[in-house]
Write a protein that binds this DNA or RNA. Structure first.
Ligand SMILES: [Mn+2]
Ligand SMILES: [Mn+2]
Ligand SMILES: [Mn+2]
Ligand SMILES: [Mn+2]
Lengths: 216, 216
DNA sequence: TATAAAGTTTAGCCAAGGCTAAACTTAAAT
DNA sequence: ATTTAAGTTTAGCCTTGGCTAAACTTTATA
């Protein structure tokens, strides 16, 4: 059993990877100082969970990736479970799962997976890794570089920032919704979409985190 | 937000109280060494959560008790929730709740309470404290000193030791079941009960943890 | 009542996981 | 090619929450 801190480090490296992740990037994602990251990364390297090249960055070993995927699985199963049973809003799920993910036994994990019928995606549309780290090939594309004037299906929305997810929800954008890019503001990459018969402007930074698919 | 360790210390002092709880008793309940208990108890005293008389023992201040009851509430709501939704067995509930109880926000706590319809008891029959620490008067009596040849209703069974709860379950003893004490083995306090048309012998140590009520 | 036993506390150590300040590398800009 | 800036690591410190061994109290026993 790894500590909460270790599980969160592995998950962050996974999320920011698979490229080498820099100390500062990891630090700001975890909300700690760069010096703390260096120290922990050295420990994780010592444990065989991470490969570290000084002054370059960190990446997961296959053992580290397996553990990261296990945390991600627990996180996403929990989000799905809380959404299904309690009807929590998509914007509340992430923060709860962020803590509960560290307190779930294997048995409870699989009881939840069974209860939910082994879902493939969580309420944000993020794929749920299988019990042995299987993650089906990522075919969803960022909205930010999708073609205009085509019907697109929203597949994934970001979960990290609850103000972003509630803004998206309030504008009718969540997994399963169909939309069409009508125009682009080339100067800043902003996107104007038609969704549900009205136009929504999405900034490029959010649009790069919204994933779509072209088949409907 | 108190740490996991602090929450567990407060809960244990509450469970072993309200008398002054000795260092050793607390240590064995928490599975740490007595010296560790002394150190933590001093910290808790400093924080105003505990009153400590050296060489005598520790008890909760009203602030400490409130916090303990909050942990107990989360624990028991979680047991009820996991039992209701996933159908976990009574013997699996405690261990899961023991960790999850530390990862529950106020919002999730009350979402679960609402979902369950603000239950008064958990699956072991233990009363669930209200959101402000209200705990209805304890009127259930230990089976160990209940009268013979009277119909008794099982109200509470212990949850701490999963082998005990599964033994009780296998012998048909759980909240709501009716039974009758047929005889006592005076030499060791053992009790012979009729439950479901057959006789079960219950040791005195278990019988003191099974609570009954006389009205049916 | 003196002594032994049991229980508690103190002292000192350790690992985890944070922090700041200073040193060091690498990349960028003169 | 220097100098500067940005990013990273090291050194040293701190708190939390464990541990062991030794000292101290209290209680029980002879
Ligand atoms: Mn987390
Ligand atoms: Mn998610
Ligand atoms: Mn606990
Ligand atoms: Mn219980």
């Amino acid at each position: 059993m790894y500590s909460i801190a270790i599980e969160d480090y592995l998950k962050s490296i996974w999320k920011l990877g698979p490229k080498d992740v820099g100390t500062q990037e990891l630090a700001s994602h975890l909300d700690v100082k760069p010096a703390s990251v260096t120290k922990m990364v050295l420990r994780l390297t010592e444990m065989g969970l991470v490969d570290h090249t000084p002054y370059k960055g960190a990446s997961l070993t296959s053992e580290g990736e397996l553990e990261a995927l296990s945390v991600v699985r627990r996180h996403r199963l929990l989000e799905t479970f809380l959404s299904q049973t309690l009807g929590l809003g998509r914007d509340q799920l992430h923060a709860e799962a962020e803590r509960l993910e560290h307190a779930l036994s294997k048995e409870l994990e699989s009881a939840i997976a069974d209860y939910l019928g082994n879902p493939e995606r969580d309420p944000h549309g993020h794929p749920i890794p299988g019990p042995n780290g299987e993650l089906f090939g990522e075919t969803d594309l960022p909205l930010s570089d999708s073609p205009m004037n085509e019907i697109l299906t929203v597949m994934q929305i970001p979960d990290y920032d609850s103000s972003v997810s509630s803004w998206l929800e309030n504008n009718g954008i969540f997994p399963g919704v169909k939309l069409e890019i009508k125009s682009r503001d080339d100067f800043d990459g902003g996107i104007n979409c038609e969704v549900n018969n009205h136009i929504v402007r999405i900034t490029s930074s959010i649009a790069s985190l919204v994933k779509i698919s072209k088949e409907d």
